[in-house]
Each structure stands twice: as C-alpha cells, then as structure tokens.
Amino acid sequence: MRYTLLLHYPEMTAEELGPEALAEGMAAFDAYTKALDASGVLISAEVLQPVAHTTTVSLASGTPVVQDGPYADTKEQLGGTVVIDVPDLDAALAWAQQAPPVHYGTVEIRPSATHFADGAWTAFDFQ
C-alpha cells in the first residue's frame, strides 16, 4: 500500500540554520532515505524550496489568477514529501517516526487513493 509522508515544519533559511545545522539536517535526511531505499520501500522523495519561491495559479474564478506565495500561509509549511510502499499503516508509522522532521515538525501519513503507473490509474481505493 502506498503512503505519502507529508513533512510539515517551520521554514528556515540556510543563513538562519547556519552551515553546521544545515549539514547535519542534510546528513540526517540522507541516512533516512538511504535506509528507506535499502529496505526496498522507497518510491520517491522530494525536498521542496521554501514558499518564498512558490507560485500558485487558479482558474476557479474564470480568469487565471497567478499569485506569488503559497496557497495557505501557515507557520508550518509543507517542506517535502516521501512516497513509500509498505504493507500497512503500522509499517508506515514505523517509518514516519524515523523521518528527521518529526523532531522539529509534523509528519502526516496519507494513504494513496490511486496512482498513475504504466499509462493508467490503478484501481481507486474508495474509503
């Protein structure tokens, strides 16, 4: 079963973090994703740029509205995603607890409903 781990945490710039904390954070994330990979459960992992670099677009009002900045301006932002394939929530929870951001933010464990692979969507899991 696929889960997306949504990593939410307060944004810090490289200057705010300082070179040591930055290197430490990168090493922790590197070790985490390598453990996921070595265990054969990793589908993909992304670390996102801060919301200062994000752009949102919507056609909901009929005309395109392009905006600088995030959809929702909150204290904690979505900072990265990790997609894993594990048998169940227990396993997803075990891995989520190892994700470095659990120490300074929140990790949301979101089950996949369906995903696109080999030219088609997989069977939709209605819940």
Partner: peptide
C-alpha cells in the same frame, strides 16, 4: 513479513 515491514534498521531487516 510483518516483522520485516516494521523494521527500520536495514541491518536487522
């Protein structure tokens, strides 16, 4: 299989 799925240490896995 369940034990393996709960193991996050690659060595133990």
């Amino acid at each position: 299989a369940k034990a393996i799925s709960l193991t996050t240490d690659p060595r133990v896995r």
